[in-house]
């Protein structure tokens, strides 16, 4: 991960925002009684699109791939979790936003861990 404060805070806020948006979209779209698997796939796609929209807004200040990949992943993750939850039980608007935001933060945390594992020299002469 990028340890510069501006980027750390920016990444956290961008992914939190995507998560909340994906959670709220799940609350709007999915109803209790939906097939859970269908709800999961539909909201993963919707969350990814939400991530793309947020990326287009924040890319100018926060960067390119380092923003695009995490926010799309976080949107997908939040859509998946909250979409599935909505299919199983009714959630309040606040709960959907809170679970979505938490999933967004989980998404950026997973990306940071993956980045720590993958970055650096992979092949030498």
């Amino acid at each position: 991960m990028d340890h510069r404060l501006f980027f750390v805070v920016g990444d956290l806020l961008a992914n939190l925002l995507v998560g909340v948006i994906a959670g709220l979209l799940s609350w709007l779209i999915v109803d209790t009684g939906w097939n859970m698997v269908i709800a999961m796939f539909v909201m993963m796609a919707v969350g990814m699109i939400a991530g793309l929209v947020v990326f287009m807004v924040v890319t100018f200040k926060l960067g390119a791939m380092e923003v695009m990949v995490p926010v799309m992943f976080s949107g997908m993750l939040s859509g998946m979790f909250v979409g599935m939850a909505m299919a199983m039980m009714p959630l309040s608007l606040g709960d959907a936003a809170m679970y979505g935001g938490a999933s967004g933060l989980l998404g950026i945390a997973i990306c940071w861990i993956a980045n720590t594992l993958l970055r650096g020299k992979t092949r030498q002469a």
């Binding site: 791939m65 650096g120 092949r123």
Partner: peptide
């Protein structure tokens, strides 16, 4: 080309 070194900057994307 003969690859000498590949270094990941962000994930395996950059």
């Amino acid at each position: 080309f003969k690859i000498d070194e590949v270094s990941n900057v962000f994930l395996d994307v950059v």
